[in-house]
Design a protein around this nucleic acid. Sequence first.
DNA 1: TATTGTTATACTCTATAACTATA
DNA 2: TATAGTTATAGAGTATAACAATA
Lengths: 150, 150
Amino acid sequence: MTQTATTRALGPKGVSALSEELRLACMRISRRVRFESVDGDLAPHHFSVLARLEDGARTPRRLADIEKVSAPSMTRTVGYLVDAGLVGRHDDPEDGRRVLVELTGEGRAAIEQTRRRRGRWMSERVAELTAQEQATLAEAAAILGRIAAR
Amino acid sequence: MTQTATTRALGPKGVSALSEELRLACMRISRRVRFESVDGDLAPHHFSVLARLEDGARTPRRLADIEKVSAPSMTRTVGYLVDAGLVGRHDDPEDGRRVLVELTGEGRAAIEQTRRRRGRWMSERVAELTAQEQATLAEAAAILGRIAAR
DNA sequence: TATTGTTATACTCTATAACTATA
DNA sequence: TATAGTTATAGAGTATAACAATA
């Protein structure tokens, strides 16, 4: 709640400068991670949908809402994932209009593989930092996580 | 160079966990910033090319190489920006095969406007943090900047 | 002969509108 | 009548191949 006596909150100029620096740093990190790990032919929107299914089956309608794309687009995306064997499509026993999309074992494996590849680039760099720097980043990650969730 | 006696560098597990947390935080921040600031009809690839021209004119060939797209794609993108009045296309007096693409005043204004909009979302959130948190983020931004540049 | 830029053509992802089946 | 999903069709953005102009 209270702040230490030696530090003062930043003024508008300082806030603006820090925000710009942080924003750019985050964008660059994201871009590097994305480029450095080619994701083995799994396009961003395909991976994104797979990840949404990790904690359970979803209808195409719900997936379209979450991913902010149209229903026909999601039909197409799900169709691709079915053909690739990464998800299964089943009729909902409770509502004949509905379809449930669910991860296959292969789909789960694809998610894990993509995550591992992406994590490698970052891990190699974090490992080279001093303990002090790692501690700072751990605190920063928590703060950034809170900011992004708001 | 030397580290404080009270902290120890992270082991492989800790590095991996921290990396994943940081990577996700950076991705989420980037995505939020991108979504929250709609960029006034300026698509990402259009903005990206404009930004490349800030420190001087470039040929379409060079722009295509930098942005990692094909020459025909860049022809199309530059064509759009010319139609929008954001860049100008001029013959290179030194080499008749070449064309030089250059920012117009309107193009410069569009870059500034986009940057301002993007900065606002982040600034609003950074301003609400404690002085301690802001200080942590300032250190983190410097470290992340170094990582991204390597 | 090599390089710069454009045009021709095709593929992918996206969208809106129209259609089918179920509630 | 409303909702879930699909199919039909069109609009961006991208790519490769072929072409014209210049070096």
